[in-house]
Amino acid sequence: MSNVAITSQPRGDGILARLSDALWRRPTLFLVLLLAPPALWLGIIYLGSLFALLAQSFFSIDEFSGLINYEFTLKTYRELFIPANLDIIIRTTLMATCVTLGAAVLAFPIAYYAARYARGKWKALFYLGVMLPLWSSYLVKVYAWKLILAKEGILNWIFEVLHLTWALEAYLAIPLIGGNSLSVSYSGTFLVFLYVWLPFMVLPMQASLERVSASYLEASADLGAKPLQTFRLVLLPLALPGIIAGSIFTFSLTLGDYIIPQIVGSSRLFIGQAVYTHQGTAGNIPLAAAFTVVPVVIMGFYLWMAKRQGAFDAL
């Protein structure tokens, strides 16, 4: 069909044809024309605002008038290190680490099974089984957990039916991870984070496991390694780029999220919530900006490490 269309087109000598000839002769100009719209959009709108925000973190807020003092200062950054704010940063980073580790553990069997054993229809099923939760609405997923963790919800009901309420209560009595109920505890926040970001771990992990040839594992077994040794010494190092690639998502997404801890969790703040309150009700843009620099720095460091491990090939 399209072949016919091409041959039937006259060799145009119109403006379009001359323009395309000119572009063909000047590949650099053509490249610039291709790149200009996306580069300008992302450069001006995105990077521009990012740097504008960064600049604001070097201003400070006048404690009495509440107005922003437009003079270069590191005072705002110093404020990050007062105990209350440091707590927020440590809490968020710890949570992100736990979620990343939890996601890696949960994702591995799914990714490994899909990469090694699933064939044909099952392969497609596994792929969709990860893609559908990945792409379905974030808020709906959070909402589902609000339903699950509610006092009158299904989780408490299951524990009741199994006569295991005592076990749940014993768990909730543990300080730090426990609380009055799951929906106001760190464990609840952790569960929801884990649920929402898990697919982001499975996909890159599976991509890197696909590339591990079965013969390596066979060779390892033939040379006398036990399954656990093969896993630790052969499979894990080879899958590491994928795990790191996945962890970029789980880590970064947890660091910046402010909705999940607001809906499920204790009332203690995470970085995202701190940013939100400082820019909103408190009107302290400099401190909010300084707070956003924290995940940027952490992620910058993380990405740099990931790049050195070759994680970007697995994306």
Partner: peptide, 11 residues
Amino acid sequence: ALPGIITGISL
């Protein structure tokens, strides 16, 4: 790659 809150607040 960066948390959405950063994109949001900088915009």
